[in-house]
Write a protein that binds this DNA or RNA. Sequence first.
DNA 1: AACGTCCACAACCGCCGGCTC
DNA 2: GGAGCCGGCGGTTGTGGACGT
Length: 271
Amino acid sequence: MGRSPCCEKAHTNKGAWTKEEDDRLIAYIRAHGEGCWRSLPKSAGLLRCGKSCRLRWINYLRPDLKRGNFTEEEDELIIKLHSLLGNKWSLIAGRLPGRTDNEIKNYWNTHIRRKLLSRGIDPTTHRPINHDPAIIINNNISFSGTASSKDEDRKNMSGGGGGGGGLIVGKEEKMISSPVNIITKERCPDLNLELRISPPTYQEPILMMMKSDSDEDVSSTVCFACSTVPQKSKECGCGNSVIITGSSSNSGYDFLGLKTAVLDYRSLEMK
DNA sequence: AACGTCCACAACCGCCGGCTC
DNA sequence: GGAGCCGGCGGTTGTGGACGT
């Protein structure tokens, strides 16, 4: 389909932003709020493309940004999230307050990739370099909830049979070829997700919800898909229905250190 | 000091999905 | 249902500074 250019390139500045441009943008957004990026440059008196303004604001000027070096905890969280989500930088950024997708993407490409390589881990697949690819093809799935060492995890991944409390998929389950199974198997050899597929009796479309450590009720549960908090209707911002289970100690599942409720693989389907 | 190379990161580009008409 | 608009995302590039020779 034909698309008009997002801006008239002949009359827009490019390259690094000047202090004056930053000030104009900040002043305009403070006065009028975010949104309508297409018309913003004209309204704000900026010779910039709307997309450029949006990026500048989101990645650099936003007041809630956390500048400075990534902590070791952030490093590890990024690695774990990347192993699960792949290059979904915006989703990863959603779990790191004050960090932007662009920042995390750059940080990944410059620091973490190298860090993983130095550990002998393929940053794309999160598998040990020279890992036997045949293992990926294996159909038996069991993420043991009790496995602690990486070796043990890998053993389970490679078809070690059923572990207790983990993701258990029977022989006749069609779920075995579900996207999350494949994704998780391929990308997360070292990640103890303690995931569990929700029972097939659920009729509604559901999604994985993540609860922060301090969260006690539904109102503070965050949709993993859209990063919004579901309202009392138990629908989050992306319109998915939400199934909240009891406390994480029994029916919730600890996900990357965050207590979670029921997981449905469809919410994790990759593009 | 001068030059070349590497690195980090801001910014750009093209594409996609959702929404509206 | 299709066309167009818009915001958003992910990949890539450009550039300035750091570092090594």
